[in-house]
């Protein structure tokens, strides 16, 4: 998939297995169009702000939703969330935090920084599919962007 296409779903996940599962969960909910996986926080921000290897995306629309892992190489998920939500232009992008941790401080911190949802990645894949369905769908389909 080239980055020149419009990207609807951006998955920020360094574990390829988790990323594959997330894509499969989306597929189960018929949401496979234009998904891009980036492996660290730096790439995620480069993508959002059209810089680095994503410079050619300048002027293209923002993704409709970002699925964001918290534990990431280089720039961690909370920092990525903070940067997206502090910027006037990007703060309207729905960000769903996806993490294996049920740590209360992570949940509270994520919501403080403006996360739109928080999904604890369950070990049971079926539950994961349900969670993606409940929250991902909501933000993707029900939440229309102001044009």
């Amino acid at each position: 998939m080239t980055t020149k296409q419009e990207i609807e779903i951006l998955i920020v996940e360094d574990n390829p297995n988790d990323a594959e599962m997330a894509i499969r969960a989306l597929k189960k909910n018929n949401l496979t169009n234009n998904v891009l996986v980036v492996e660290d926080g730096e790439q995620a921000l480069d993508f959002i702000f059209s810089r680095g290897k994503f410079t050619d995306r300048k002027g293209m629309t923002h993704p409709k939703i970002v699925l964001l892992d918290l534990k990431l190489p280089k720039i961690d998920g909370l920092e990525v969330l903070k940067v997206i939500k502090e910027n006037q232009e990007t703060k309207i992008i729905p960000v769903v935090v996806l993490t294996s941790s049920k740590e209360e401080r992570d949940i509270i911190e994520s919501y403080n920084l403006g996360a739109n949802s928080y999904i604890v990645k369950p070990v049971d894949f079926d539950k994961f599919v349900d969670a993606v369905k409940d929250l991902g769908l909501y933000w993707l389909l029900l939440n229309q962007f102001p044009n």
Binding site: M21, K71, V123, F125
Partner: peptide
Amino acid sequence: YSVSHDLRAPLRAINGFSK
């Protein structure tokens, strides 16, 4: 913290890929 994040990831993969 590490246990709650890192130890779960392989379990998730085992369960998910078995599925």
